[in-house]
Amino acid sequence: MTYWQLFWSFFQIGLFSIGGGYAAMPLIQHQVMDVHPWLTMTQFADIMAIAEMTPGPISVNAATFVGIRVSGPAGAIVATAGCILPSCGIVMALAYIYYRFRGLSIVKGVLAGLRSAVVAMIASAGLSLLTLSFYGQRTLPAEPGSPDLLSVALFCAGLFALRHFRVKPIYVMIGSGVLGMLAYFI
């Protein structure tokens, strides 16, 4: 039963994450926190950081991590299979359609609509991570006056480095981790 739940959850994640790893993130969050009690917000944030630091797609990394925690190595394989199975079918079908009807405007319209939704999903997931980082909880507190100043500083510095100097995400994450640790000892 758990295997089936793992498979089905990650099947949906694979089916509906359009536009790369960051698009999968809110779907993963929804499945492993809201639908099933598999991860806490802290664990979810950890797996996002780990997924970013290790090679491979975020959804496959998350599937392996969640699968192994919920029901061992077999769970990891089942979740990963669920995650990539929709791709196999859809990509092959799309390749066929693409070569036959490429440039069809209706298809482009659907994709444009989906892309707008994807940005909103990522923004929503980003906001919960941001509040967790600033306030130590997932939802915005009633009194937004006292965020963790170190986290705010790290966030601003990270964003500046990314936007202005085009620093690679991996360095920003490692940098903020190391700085966060050092600041504790100062």
């Binding site: 940005v119 990522i122 923004a123 980003g126 170190l150 986290s151 790290l154 190391v178 966060g180």
Partner: peptide, 28 residues
Amino acid sequence: LVSLVMTGMLSGVAAVICDVVITLGARV
């Protein structure tokens, strides 16, 4: 120590996601 690093990294992850949102949002 690991916990401290992870907490600091959380801010970094948030910054990375924020950056992605700005880039993709601007495209839309």
